[in-house]
Design a protein around this nucleic acid. Structure first.
Length: 920
RNA sequence: GCGGGUGUGGUGAAAUUGGUAGACACGCUAGACUUAGGAUCUAGUGCUUCACGGCAUGGGGGUUCGAGUCCCUUCACCCGCACCA
């Protein structure tokens, strides 16, 4: 009788749910292990086979760790706030909660089928008030904090207020917006509004007039990581720059710590590199240039202070605040035209225009701080307003962009470093000897940098400075379906809603659109007013708010008194293994690290990096199938014949193609216009063409995990997804080869059953042969799981089962262990066999069998051996020979010709390694 | 342009990290059994040669007794970032 996976899987699914087999407690004698998946956003399309890849890998790891005696936390939940549900709400009027709940139920159903060991009692949904109450609370902590550069951490805003009251802000070294110096007396004489505004310059969550990414189509602002190539990440709508009053988080304060923290976590190099890139640290100097006939100073940031004598002009961004002051009468018209033009360009147009060098002269001159020469000041759109000071000192000889600008407008190019071919291109290398540079002449570039900074500082012209590309994160969204920001306004002053009133729940609205006055949708809410203020903040939090701390809530999900008890966060501590896609590199993964550090600084948790180890699973691509329609007809020709006709490839639903062969009847039934199609076959078959593309509904190449589960069973899906190739590699989905895994499951089942299909195992020890096979597997699986090399384990299972089959092994002692070893990968069948073996409880709670090396080796062992301090031999000796004997044996044969003939020891491999001693 | 990665049979891929390249699986070929099935089992399957053998890890060079693995160079593809001063 064959293995009936439908019955067996149903049985255990129900039993696991009923008995809460995978419930995890916060108290245990065992060591802890926290295995986490990036929780999904439940979209309307449901899961496709790509989604579970990471979940299966983490589930195998979690189950394995459980078998190894760890108390494992392996939870799942949903990132439930988000744009698609809201867009749907706008179109249909259906409340996003309803859409979300329906999607969520479908996700849960699909997840359940695959047999994950999630503790569903810890499920969280970011859109539930019980959850976002604490998201709001964390926002409040950010609002109530400032970043002290002296102590290098976030501190309570109350401390800062005390400092202001006692001594003003002169001695405060904070990560803050530019704020004029004031004394204690001046502070005391300020109005409430003035004080509030100043404090906003310091708070980690602050309201400010700032340049934002505005997406008119979505009607909201977006954070930098949500904008890709000038288009919104969601929906691909154009994004423009706009000045708006906005909530932001001061993540820039943490730039250095976010950079340093990367050193201590185990992530892939490429991911760390992406974050480093995003943080964009660069060191150099900021210095002020005096402006001729003006009191103004023009401040610039440069990474090349060594080239100070090569400055031949200055360039400021079209948005620079001094544009008007610096523009002379005669240049006024030209400048205005240029600036207006630049402002009207969308971000995307500006990017597309990179190769066009444009700019205008302002008519003003700066004074070189060392030579006193006049330097013309230009406006150019290659200078970005948002980076550094929005102004540069142009060194045409040693910067390719300045060089291009100089060439375009015929400005001087002054080389100050020997080398390169200045006639052709800028010499940008940071090496060489300084020339034409007064006190820097003769120095090497590296020295010249230090000397220049020293000189700049000692003359009071500026100072050495580190700049970061990382911008503060825009936090408000003019949308409905998100967490309300717990703030209200009273006489125009933003005030934090008292924490006793959290959650500030999302009010009902009649429509999910902005109001006529242009307020966000929350402006439509009736009777939604604070007790003593004018109105609540109307924007909501961005999608990444809830996901920035969810890993903490899983530790203590039902806690009503706090986001998670300190005991719980201390016990579970960091996430030991985090699996998810690489697309969150500069969003979720950066914000989570930021929030973690803030919570750490404020003493709420005891660690400052959330995810100790992170693995990115590769994307699963779709394999699209094509049929070839002869143009102008309803006739389709098989792939091999398509070149004999004039054909057009047509996407075919991959679910009606099996191993490249089209199911013609299903094809006819698939779409009405194909019902009468004719076919020209090859060898009686219609063969389809194929191509690898991203999985998408429109390409008819979406494969649903449910289909695989109902056809082959969940265990096969799990094993097959792992068997597909290395976890981290992107790979096309293909069901070629799934039969191999299916066959394995059958063989595995048959090991425990006789020819008639009756359960049949025998008592007694396994033979030496059998134990060797088993322990080879145990060793292999152990290594594979620890190295996340799940694909080779599946091969090892196959080898093991084949060999046991050959040995006709049906010993309980062997088969019992085998079931345990396979169980992380194929839990359903393992559980069934476990119970058939008469074992108590779930296989989940068994102990992973110990690897016993003596069974691995039959009669000999290979020893690497050094020889004359130069060569190494690998010799095989009988197992029972001890080290001293081997040593004696080797030395005795040291000069023997026999070695070269391969006669004395079994095998000689010459290895030129400097190994001195015999190694066993 | 900068950064990261990959390249091995017809296909997905292994290779104890410098030691018998291609485990395992798909596919294919032949055979067996048969209540004809998308079942099971057995054998074969990198290329080349009748054979002995020779050649094979994108290409070229190097280090080494020995290289898929290390170094240099070159090509191809994938993924990030991109006027960041």
């Amino acid at each position: 009788m064959d293995y009936n996976f439908i019955e067996v899987e149903k049985k255990w699914r129900e039993k696991w749910a009923e008995e809460k087999t995978y419930k995890t407690l916060n108290e245990s004698e065992k060591p802890k292990c926290y295995v986490l998946d990036m929780f999904p956003y439940p979209s309307g399309a449901g899961l496709h086979v790509g989604h579970p890849l990471g979940y299966i890998a983490s589930d195998i790891y979690a189950r394995f760790k459980k078998l190894k005696g760890f108390n494992v936390l392996h939870p799942m939940g949903y990132d439930a706030f988000g744009l698609p549900a809201e867009q749907y709400a706008i179109q249909t009027g259906q409340h996003p909660k309803i859409t979300t709940d329906a999607n969520l139920a479908r996700y849960r159903e699909q997840l359940d089928k695959i047999g994950f060991s999630f503790d569903w009692d810890r499920e969280i949904r970011t859109c539930e008030p019980e959850y976002y109450k604490w998201t709001q609370w964390i926002f409040a902590q950010l609002f109530k904090s400032w970043y002290n550069n002296q102590s290098q951490k976030a501190e309570s805003i109350d401390n800062l207020i005390m400092i202001f009251e006692n001594e003003g802000n002169a001695s405060v070294d904070a990560a803050c917006a530019e704020t004029p110096i004031f004394t204690a007396q001046e502070w005391a004489s300020k109005t409430e509004k003035e004080q509030s505004d100043i404090l906003l310059n310091y708070r980690l969550a602050y309201l400010s007039e700032s340049m934002v990414n505005w997406c008119p189509a979505l009607g909201t602002v977006l954070a930098n990581d949500e904008v890709i190539n000038g288009l919104s990440e969601r929906g691909g709508h154009p994004v423009e720059r706009k000045l708006m009053l906005q909530w932001s988080l001061r993540i820039s304060a943490y730039a250095e710590r976010l950079l340093q923290g990367l050193e201590e976590i185990d992530w892939t190099d490429s991911l760390k590199e992406m974050q480093r890139n995003w943080i964009g640290k660069s060191t150099g100097a900021s210095l002020k240039f005096k402006i001729q006939n003006s009191k103004l100073d023009l401040e610039v940031f440069t990474t090349r202070p060594d080239t100070i004598f090569g400055v031949s002009f200055m360039v400021i961004a079209p948005e620079h605040e001094y544009v008007d002051e610096l523009t002379s009468e005669e240049q006024k018209a030209t400048v205005e035209e240029y600036v207006t033009n630049a402002k009207n360009k969308s971000e995307r147009e500006r990017m597309a225009d990179v190769k066009n060098v444009t700019g205008v002269f302002t008519g003003s001159y700066a004074i070189h701080p060392f030579t006193g020469k006049e330097i013309p000041i230009w406006i150019g759109d290659y200078v970005l307003a948002g980076y550094g000071t929005g102004a540069v000192m142009a060194v045409a000889a040693h910067d390719s962009r300045d060089y291009a600008f100089a060439k375009q407008f015929n400005l001087p190019i002054l080389p100050v470093i020997e080398g390169g071919n200045i006639e052709e291109e800028a010499y940008e290398a940071k090496s060489g000897i300084m020339i034409n540079s007064d006190f820097l002449d003769g120095l090497k570039v590296k020295q010249a940098m230090k000397t220049a900074i020293w000189k700049i500082e000692s003359e009071g012209l500026g100072k050495g400075k580190t700049n970061y590309r990382l911008r503060d994160a825009i936090f408000g969204r003019q949308r409905y379906w998100g967490e309300p920001i717990p703030m209200y306004f009273e006489n125009g002053i933003p005030k934090l809603l008292d924490e006793s009133k959290y959650p500030l729940t999302l009010p009902e609205v009649d429509e999910y659109l902005p109001t006529e006055d242009g307020d966000p949708p929350l402006g439509r809410a009736k009777d939604w007013k604070p007790e003593n203020g004018d109105h609540y903040e109307l924007s909501t939090m961005p999608g990444w708010a809830g996901s920035s701390w969810y890993y903490l809530r899983y530790m203590d999900p039902q806690n009503v008194g706090t986001f998670a008890s300190r005991e719980a966060t201390d016990y579970w501590n960091q996430v030991d293994l985090y699996i998810g896609g690489t697309e969150h590199a500069t969003g979720h993964l950066l914000y989570s690290r930021f929030w973690c550090k803030v919570l750490f600084d404020l003493g709420h948790i005891g660690f400052e990096e959330p995810f100790k180890k992170l693995i990115n699973q590769g994307m699963i691509l779709g394999t699209s199938n094509f049929a070839y329609r002869v143009n102008g007809t309803n006739k389709f020709v098989s792939k091999g014949l398509k070149n004999q006709y004039d054909t057009t490839p047509v996407h075919v639903d991959v679910n009606i193609v099996k191993n490249d062969e089209l199911d013609i009847e299903a094809f006819k039934a698939w779409r009405a216009d194909f019902a009468n199609a004719e076919f020209e076959l090859e060898n009686g078959k219609y063969i389809c063409g194929e191509e690898v593309e991203k999985m998408s509904k429109s390409k008819f190449n979406v494969v649903n995990p449910d289909d695989i589960v109902s056809e082959h069973g969940a265990d096969v899906l799990r094993l097959y997804e792992m068997f597909l190739g290395p976890l981290e590699q992107a790979k096309p989905w293909s069901t070629k080869g799934i039969d191999g895994v299916s066959r394995f499951i059958r063989k595995f089942w048959n090991l425990y059953h006789d020819a008639d299909g009756n359960f049949s195992v025998s008592e007694g020890e396994g033979s030496k042969e059998e134990m060797k096979v088993l322990h080879t597997l145990i060793k292999k699986v152990q290594e594979d799981v620890e190295n996340f090399s799940f694909n080779t384990s599946v091969s090892a299972f196959m080898v093991c089962v084949n060999e046991l089959q050959k040995l006709k092994c049906n010993k309980k002692a062997v088969l019992r262990e085998l079931a345990i070893v396979v169980s992380p990968y194929a839990p359903f069948i393992a559980e069934e066999l476990w119970s058939k073996l008469g074992e108590k409880g779930s296989v989940t709670n068994a102990l992973f069998p110990e690897f016993k090396p003596s069974f691995l080796v039959e009669s000999s062992h290979t020893y690497p051996i050094s020889f004359n301090g130069k060569m190494r031999f690998k010799l095989e000796f009988p197992l029972d020979m001890d080290k001293a004997e081997i040593e004696k044996e080797v030395l005795a044969h040291k000069d023997s010709q026999k070695w070269l003939e391969g006669k004395a020891p079994k095998k000689i491999i010459v290895v030129p390694k400097k190994i001195v001693n015999i190694v066993v």
